[in-house]
């Protein structure tokens, strides 16, 4: 554990969670087209910046590893793993795959991923497509990191970088928080760079709890500058460099019953579940809140 707290070198394992929600990016580019803006920040431009960033990480240290996980509206998938061994049908295609650069591999996988997303969506009918499956990709990233940390030493220092565009998904509140706490437990910082319009309360809390960096670039067109200046900094160098600190963090919780963000609510005295209205029994742990006595004794209002 001491090792993890004081990294001795700058070898990093960066897990990038790429928001590839087609609905979010589609809406963004169509809005840009309506306003006849030529400078709108489309997915293509976003990817240019991200690919440049990935190459920068490889430039810093030959032992650096990068994993890219795509976050869609209905599914998540590994898009790229710098350690990955490609499974190919025969030796010749294996050699061909080996020759591909990271950029080619990622773009190819990304196309497959978006195509699959479209099929998934048709089959599953209407889910709320505005949101990306952040909880899913966070969990995948943490699983991957656990696998690395349990592998043979020396371990690179892992960190997660969320490139989030779509707004927070209240239904995922519990899952996201669980992922954040397990990241905190395994000392994995979560960095977040929000390229969408809204600030993300989830990611603000994630970075605050795990000691990562939260940034919402004022001009998404300059995304690479933010990525190179702030998010490329390895954990060793972070001890010596001035980095943007946490601004005001939105600590509001979401209630478990309607998944709404609330300022004030009720907390179950047994399992600490949060509700926006007083309940007779806790829906999470089935605790009975003694209905015949004063309900205030069992249900305390929770201040934000």
């Amino acid at each position: 554990m001491m090792d993890a707290l004081t990294p001795k070198d700058d070898i990093s394992q960066v897990v990038i969670l790429l928001d590839a929600n087609p609905y979010f990016w589609g809406e963004k580019s169509s809005r840009g087209a309506n306003r006849a803006e030529t400078t709108s920040f489309t997915f293509d431009r976003f990817m240019e910046h991200v690919l440049l960033f990935i190459n920068s990480i490889f430039l810093l240290n030959q032992a650096n590893r990068v994993v890219v996980i795509g976050t869609g509206a209905t599914s998540c998938a590994y898009l790229y793993d710098s350690q990955g061994i490609e499974v190919a049908a025969n030796a010749r295609s294996a050699r061909a795959v080996k020759k591909q650069s990271a950029v080619e591999k990622i773009t190819q996988k990304l196309e497959d991923f978006v195509a699959k997303e479209a099929v998934c969506d048709l089959n599953q009918g209407m889910e709320d497509t505005r949101y990306s499956l952040l909880s899913g990709s966070l969990s995948m990233a943490l699983c991957y990191i656990q696998k690395v940390l349990r592998g043979p030493p020396p371990h690179p220092r892992p960190r997660i970088l969320c490139l989030q565009g779509s707004p927070d998904a209240p239904p995922q509140y519990i899952a996201v928080m669980n992922a954040i706490f397990s990241a905190q437990r395994s000392l994995v910082p979560i960095d977040a760079c929000v390229v969408g319009d809204q600030t993300s309360a989830f990611l603000q809390q994630a970075t605050h709890i795990t000691g990562g960096i939260y940034q919402k670039p004022a001009t998404p067109e300059g995304l690479y500058e933010y990525l190179a200046m702030v998010f490329a900094t390895d954990l060793y160098s972070r001890k010596f460099l001035q980095l943007p600190g946490a601004s005001a963090v939105d600590f509001r919780a979401s209630c478990f019953c309607h998944k709404k963000s609330i300022d004030m609510g009720f907390v179950c005295s047994v399992c600490l579940s949060i509700f926006c209205k007083g309940q007779r029994t806790c829906t999470t742990c089935n605790a009975n809140f003694a209905p015949n006595k004063s309900s205030a004794a069992a249900q305390k209002p929770k201040a934000s």
């Binding site: 810093l60 690479y224 460099l241």
Partner: peptide, 21 residues
């Protein structure tokens, strides 16, 4: 160029990246 950059101390590498463009 790549080998030289990689041989630098971690902080110096960050500076190179920051000044790259």
């Amino acid at each position: 160029c790549q080998a030289v950059v990689r041989s630098l101390p971690p902080l110096a590498k960050q500076y190179v990246l920051r000044l790259l463009f």
